[in-house]
């Protein structure tokens, strides 16, 4: 084994992570398929092509650590330990879904696993993550919080306010930018005048690093450092993962704002294939093993779809439930 791994990531964990990357991809591809067929309604934002940042970052977290996710959050949910059956049921709007069918794609949360929820408001998670980190600090709970966000969200005021606040209070939060090059149709090159989103961390006196977001090993190394930094009480940091979303922004996107050539260049750097090649080269598994792992993921997604289809729609009588806590 010639792969450089963070201490917290065992070689056994690598197999699990490889399967997880496939779960993320297959989940979103399946969602895409059912949207096209009109079987899932509303809208959805797919993270196909961005699997390595979700899996690589969450590989360094344990169940007590927390995350805030984004509108493009299915991958984060899966990597933080969500069950794809309840996720798929939520997308189908079923009562067995994570939110009993009341939240849908953009609001999946799994508090028991430390997933504080996806968010339909771009930049909505920054301050919530800071608040969760404040709880950890005030109650001395020892957990860290990862705040996933996109390149587009770094132009929201909440980004700047929350990074400043987290910095002055030394909150244990890691701001993970998944720079997928576009905020809907807005290219990061047109919408910001810095070459790296990570440069912005300097304004708040916190460390920022840039990694190849399609290389899970790179992502894990940077996250490991950031998590240690936070756990040791040094405060927040920012990790920028350069990546690309293969699909459009949401289901109605004709992708007129980018070229097919650019898409191909990124597809050639498929994060799942990159991981597989490194694992085979390192002797971790064979091509056949990799195929078996993928098959397991395919089966799990099929099972998830079946679970969703077998589940009931919520009863109309539940409409008014859950607005207020007792």
């Amino acid at each position: 084994m010639n792969l450089k791994l963070p201490e917290a990531v065992s070689t056994e964990k690598l197999t699990e992570l490889y399967e997880q990357m496939w779960l993320i991809r297959l989940f979103d591809e399946k969602v895409d398929e059912f949207f096209a067929k009109g079987k899932i309604h509303g809208t959805t934002h797919l993270a196909v092509g961005q699997e390595a940042s979700a899996a690589g970052v969450c590989a360094l977290l344990d169940d007590s650590d927390k995350i805030t996710s984004t509108h493009r959050g299915h991958g984060h949910c899966i990597s933080k330990g969500a069950d794809t059956r309840y996720m798929m049921a939520e997308l189908f709007g079923r009562e067995t879904g994570y939110c009993k069918g009341k939240g849908g794609s953009m609001h999946i949360a799994d508090l028991k696993k430390g997933n504080l929820g996806a968010n339909g408001i771009v930049g909505g998670g920054f301050a919530i993550a800071a608040g969760a980190a404040l709880t950890s600090q005030m109650k001395d709970e020892g957990y860290v919080v990862v705040c996933f966000f996109g390149d587009g969200a770094s132009n929201e005021g909440s980004f700047h306010e929350a990074l400043n606040l987290a910095s002055i209070w030394k909150l244990p939060v890691i701001f993970v930018c998944e720079n997928n090059q576009y905020g809907m149709s807005g290219s990061v090159n047109d919408m910001t005048n810095v070459s790296d989103i990570a440069d912005r961390s300097a304004s708040y006196g916190i460390p920022g690093s840039v990694v190849d977001g399609n290389d899970i090993f790179d992502v894990m190394q940077a996250t490991d450092e950031a998590v240690r930094f936070a756990r040791e009480g040094n405060g927040p940091s920012l990790v920028e993962c350069k990546t690309y979303r293969w699909k459009g922004h949401s289901k109605s996107d004709a992708k007129k704002y980018r070229t097919r050539e650019e898409e191909k260049q990124w597809r050639d750097r498929d994060p799942i294939r990159l991981m597989k090649e490194k694992l085979i080269e390192a002797g971790h598994f064979t091509e056949e093993d990799a195929e078996d792992i993928k098959k397991k993921a395919v089966e799990m997604i099929e099972e998830s779809v079946q679970f969703a289809l077998d589940s009931k729609e919520p009863d109309v009588s539940t409409l008014l439930e859950d607005v207020y806590a007792e």
Partner: peptide
């Protein structure tokens, strides 16, 4: 105000 209101929400969601 955006950060402190959100920090209140996040800390409330996690037990404060």
């Amino acid at each position: 105000e955006a950060a402190i209101s959100g920090t209140a929400v996040g800390s409330a969601l996690t037990g404060m």
